[in-house]
Amino acid sequence: MTALASLNTVPPATEFRPRFRDLTAAEWIKTRSLRSTPIAYGVTALAVLGFNLGVAYDTYTYWTARTAADRAQFIQDGIPLQHAFSSNAAVVMMLALGAIGALTVVGEYSTGTIRTTFSAVPARGAVLAAKAAVLAAVSTVFGLLLATASFFGTQAILGAREAGIDIGHPGALQVLLGSALSAPVCALAGFALGALIRQTASTMIATLTVLLILPMFLTDGRYLSALLGHATPYQAWMRLADPGYTAGEFPWTTAGAWSVYAGWAVAAVVVAMVAVRRRDQ
């Protein structure tokens, strides 16, 4: 009787704990299956390339109107590097990637699918970490491809007037990487704001304010203002994109700019994970 009872006893089901790679695989499926994802990245790429290539083509068109001295000064002053990734293009990419990062979180909250996600995987921190990992990977690849295309495209146009430079030119690799890595930094910043605010309109306004408006108000005229301004991604990009940087009253280094990038990326992930753990769905 005891043996029969033991045969009919069903062992308790063990709780399934998804591995982190399972969570990242699920987030990757979500990302690539959304129709809006290629559209958002595609429109951003077209806008950024349009600004950069347009500036280079304008220089190409009116190059013959320059004097020989102006042409020599053009290269000496590092203007080809400024054409490689213009400030207008940087603003577009930062704002677009910030919005994409924000919608990675806000989109699920607005549709209510976040409840399903957290029901399937109660470990909220792991879910947010997987989202951040996929977002960082995709935006980094996107930034690298876009910055590389911009650099070689603009220099090919300028090269037709013998005004282009190659990737071995002093500061060229710094400009390329600084522009490329601004994409994941801004995407993660928007991601963190989305996890904190969870409302589409408010998150977009906050992203615009943090990534663009505040850096414009924080000038180098006063120590505190310069210190806070140097801690923003936009001004960090400006420092990295200007190899001919001239130190002012409150100078800073390229190492400081790279540390701003790293600090924002890490802080964004931490903020998002803490926010989702301490608040209800």
Rank of each mutant, 00 (worst) to 15 (best):
L4V: 03
A272R: 05
A84H: 03
L218F: 06
A56L: 10
Q199L: 15
E108D: 11
A201Q: 13
A13K: 12
P80N: 08
I165G: 02
I167Q: 05
A268T: 06
Q199S: 14
A102W: 04
G98I: 10
L158K: 01
G190V: 10
F250Q: 04
A123H: 00
G178T: 05
T64V: 06
F85D: 03
G54S: 11
V127I: 11
S119E: 01
T148Q: 00
P215T: 05
V92F: 10
T254H: 12
S225W: 04
I205Y: 01
A90S: 08
L196K: 10
A231R: 04
S139P: 00
T44C: 10
T31Q: 01
Y223D: 15
F74Q: 06
L211H: 01
T200F: 09
Q73M: 09
T111I: 08
P12D: 12
A163G: 12
V270Y: 11
A226N: 13
M238F: 00
P38K: 01
P12E: 12
A26I: 10
L97A: 12
Y234M: 13
Q155I: 08
V270A: 15
R35H: 11
D77V: 02
Y109M: 04
T61E: 09
V260I: 14
P243L: 07
D166C: 00
T24E: 10
V55H: 03
N8C: 07
T209V: 15
R222F: 13
Y261S: 00
A133M: 07
Q73C: 03
A47Q: 00
C186I: 04
N8W: 13
Q199H: 15
A180Q: 02
L218H: 05
L211S: 03
A136T: 14
K131D: 05
G50I: 09
P12A: 14
A126W: 03
G101R: 01
P184L: 09
L158V: 02
Q82G: 14
F217Y: 12
A96I: 02
G164L: 04
E108N: 03
M93A: 06
R17H: 09
S179D: 14
T2H: 15
T104L: 07
A132P: 08
V127D: 01
Y109W: 14
W237H: 08
G98C: 07
D220V: 06
A133T: 13
L144I: 13
F51C: 08
D70T: 10
S36G: 11
D220R: 13
L173E: 11
A268M: 11
L224T: 15
G256M: 10
Y261L: 00
R71A: 15
A96F: 05
G78Y: 05
Q174F: 04
I157P: 03
C186A: 15
L34M: 14
R161V: 02
A255T: 13
A267S: 13
F151R: 08
G143I: 02
P233M: 03
A65F: 08
P12H: 11
A255C: 02
I114N: 12
A275F: 15
L181W: 02
T111W: 10
M94H: 03
G125T: 06
F20A: 09
I167T: 03
F74E: 09
L34S: 11
L135C: 04
A156N: 07
R239V: 14
